[in-house]
């Protein structure tokens, strides 16, 4: 009985769903606060993302005449649900191990493409030319960063697999267990290029400067989100908060999952997420400008891809 409740609970309450949402929104609040401080401002209250969400829930959703309504409204819902599921797939070292039946690292990788796809669908469903441009840019960005991401994950998986005597291991709990006995990959020189590539993936996946090209406010008026309002926009906010938790959690699991057991493990995990958010996201987004889509595309093909390939080759040869 309890066993059968396990999966829905993981998705809806902990560690996906509500917990991840609260965590994601808090992380966003922290991010905005630190960014403001770096810019010499006071910034919004920490709970601002929560307020925004409550406000959006109270507003009216407007569907443009040119939009296809079921797709227009369904897209954000699918995105939010997919991310809630993804959040349940990310283990918390020493505290939570996902049910292997839910899926492994490969499933997680697939789920991570859902937000981008949802944004593309949303962009084209809204029927606005800016949405359409947002669509093509989102697509280009996805093509750019998915390759390096897969290679990074493959490098880590291969490192674990080879270390265990196999070839590759796409099971996150195994990757974590391996690091807990052999030391974190953060300190493994073979994986340093992969780590660098992974850090470049963060801003691209989370859609922040310098890679917020699909939603660039001054160019395409927030692109796919242009036509959204009220609760539907809120769902996108939920999706992006959950996504932050997922990709940050993935980074922690891949590179530094060392933590004590029990509740302390959860606390350590939170600290790591916060640190990663502030260093990998807040500082990056305030210290540079936006790239053009072709520049971003070239950047990903040049650096992260090369680094990831290098890392993979090192792991394979070592």
């Amino acid at each position: 009985m309890i066993e059968s409740l396990y999966t829905p609970l993981a998705m809806l309450i902990f560690p996906g769903g509500l917990f991840a949402l609260a965590l994601g929104l808090s992380l966003k609040g922290l991010d905005r606060r630190l960014a403001a401080r770096l810019q010499g401002r006071v910034g919004p209250p920490l709970a601002q993302p929560f307020y925004d969400l409550v406000k959006l829930a109270k507003k009216r959703t407007m569907v443009p005449d040119t939009a296809c309504q079921p797709v227009f409204l369904g897209a954000p819902l699918i995105g939010a649900v997919a991310m809630a599921l993804a959040a349940a797939l990310v283990p918390i070292a020493g505290f939570y191990t996902p049910d292997p039946l839910l899926g492994d690292l490969l499933v997680l990788l697939y789920l991570l493409t859902v937000p981008a796809v949802v944004l593309m669908i949303a962009g084209s469903a809204s029927g606005s030319p800016f949405g359409a441009i947002g669509f093509s840019r989102e697509m280009a960005m996805m093509l750019a960063y998915e390759g390096p991401l897969v290679l990074v994950v493959a490098a880590v998986a291969m490192r674990t697999g080879l270390g265990q005597g196999g070839l590759v291991s796409f099971s996150l709990p195994e990757i974590i267990a391996y690091q807990q006995t052999h030391g974190a990959f953060l300190f493994d020189p073979l994986l340093w290029p992969a780590l660098a590539a992974f850090l470049a993936f963060y801003p691209a996946n989370l859609g922040i400067i310098p890679f917020d090209i699909p939603e660039a406010e001054t160019e395409v008026l927030e692109g796919p989100l242009l036509e959204y309002s009220g609760p539907a926009l809120g769902l996108f906010k939920i999706m992006s908060a959950l996504k932050a938790v997922v990709v940050l959690g993935l980074g922690v699991a891949l590179f530094y999952p060392i933590a004590p057991d029990g509740i302390a493990g959860l606390a350590v995990h939170l600290v790591k997420l916060i640190a990663l958010m502030l260093i990998g996201v807040s500082v990056v987004r305030v210290s540079c400008g936006r790239l053009r889509i072709d520049q971003a595309f070239r950047f990903f093909l040049k650096w992260p891809l090369a680094l990831a390939v290098l890392s993979l080759a090192c792991v394979a040869l070592a």
């Binding site: 910034g43 919004p44 209250p45 927030e222 959204y228």
Partner: peptide, 21 residues
């Protein structure tokens, strides 16, 4: 700009009229 920073009041300038209050 930092000197006035209406973000303290929770305000945020948005690019789309559909997001506005």
């Amino acid at each position: 700009i930092p000197r006035y920073d209406v973000e303290r009041l929770g305000c945020q300038y948005c690019g789309s009229p559909r997001h506005a209050d």
